[in-house]
Design a binder for these strands. Structure first.
Lengths: 240, 240
DNA sequence: TCTTGTTGAATTGCATGCAATCTTGTGTAA
DNA sequence: TTACACAAGATTGCATGCAATTCAACAAGA
């Protein structure tokens, strides 16, 4: 009974976010079996909140369950991630368009500008350590979340909050140099995006955002291509 | 303990879909309080599956719950419905674009054609009774569901299946003549949409679908305008 | 060696008890 | 009459027991 929990109003919520975190940061490996009793013991609660939490996570597509056979951590293939990002890109594009069409309030404009400035500072600092990338992820998240919130469509906003996939975590898989390049690319996109929104150019904003949303995917492809090339080269080497 | 249930493998699923149905068809009124014990008694199960079902429905935005204060049926304002439809229209537009870009398999093409033919028959029959509208709703649903399925993005498909709002039910609120007009409009949209998909014109398909998705909204606005006009006239009458 | 049947342990799904929290109705004081 | 306080009833949230199902290991037969 080592209480890894305690601190929230109700257990179910605590368990849900704790599990979400454990899955997202890889502590619970993809495909791993999740038993109610096991998790209950680990989190020092009874099976009831665990069961509730798992049902919630199933709706978020973080775990998948079969009747009478419990749950396991969902496996995400590259193809799955591509699909999720495509959907996200379209939804975020919609948010950008709505915001451009509606116009920015002064404080909203200021918020976006803060994000631009923050990332600009990070780039100017020329650092490429993990902390820099985490800071980028925070600002980037705020930038995108803000646009979704400012767009004024609560149904859209809710959908995006629940769709758990953010692109930033992918940066961790890139080597430092590439990570820095990705950061610069992202900033370039952000600047053009904010420009379009400020000018009320809805269609331009929408498609800039779509393209921006697929940016990490291109890098993933690139990574994959490199990996495949290496594999191919190795096979050629072996054959000779 | 009048068993309104029994017939499925597990209770939770049964309760979930039963509740979904009760909410959708209006048996459970918007804003109505839902007590676990009440529902459990009504559906002849214990509180456990009811609790799980309510958690699921909360994620679907059909009910809303507050900590320690249970759940109530969610209230949908006109504005809420507009927002949901806008999101749906964008997602369906995406599906149409993907399908157009990917190209139709022969059997997929046949399925869409069947839908077109079915609705054409309904229009030709010149009937405007409730059964005709229900049949339209069925075919219409199949049409849209098929496009979502054929698009080949499972993340998108899942999102659309879970977003419970379909436009067809709104037709019930329209007088018969308007309903028939709406049906003709929809068919016109469908034909152009399928044309765009067949020709691989992704952008055209996407925006036709967006416009099509907002069609019931325009009619709702029209209805509302009429209602308001009536109200205004009555006020003028009273004043004179 | 591979397939198939069987048995026991593990696990899920549901029911229910109990404490904590909220709601509601009544009484009291200003 | 209104505002407030308080207590009783109702309801939620969590823990846990029990039956039904599934899983795993092992043995028997092809």
């Amino acid at each position: 009974m080592h209480s890894e929990l305690r601190g929230g109003i109700n257990s179910t919520e605590e368990v849900t976010s704790k599990l979400r975190e454990l899955i997202m940061n890889g502590t619970l490996v993809q495909g791993e079996r999740l038993t109610e009793t096991g998790l209950a013991a680990r989190l020092a609660v009874s099976r009831t909140p665990v069961r509730l939490a798992l049902a919630t996570l199933e709706r978020e597509d973080l775990v998948e369950g079969a009747p009478n056979r419990g749950f396991r951590v969902r496996r995400f293939s590259i193809e799955d991630m591509r699909e999720i990002m495509e959907v996200r890109a379209v939804l975020e594009g919609m948010a950008a368009r709505l915001l451009a069409e509606k116009g920015l309030e002064p404080d909203q404009n200021a918020t976006l500008q803060e994000c631009l400035n923050g990332i600009a500072e990070l780039i100017a600092s020329k650092r490429h350590d993990p902390e820099t990338f985490r800071e980028f992820a925070r600002i980037n998240d705020r930038f995108h979340t803000s646009i979704a919130a400012f767009a004024g469509n609560t149904a859209l906003q809710r959908l995006m909050v629940r769709n758990p996939f953010r692109s930033a975590p992918l940066l961790h898989f890139l080597p430092d140099e590439e990570g820095r390049a990705a950061l610069i690319d992202a900033q370039r996109d952000h600047i053009r995006l904010v420009d379009a929104i400020r000018k009320g150019e809805g269609t331009r904003a929408e498609f800039l955002m779509r393209e921006h949303g697929l940016l990490p995917l291109q890098r993933a492809d690139q990574l994959f291509t490199n990996i495949n090339k290496n594999a191919a080269n190795q096979r050629t080497d072996e054959a000779s």
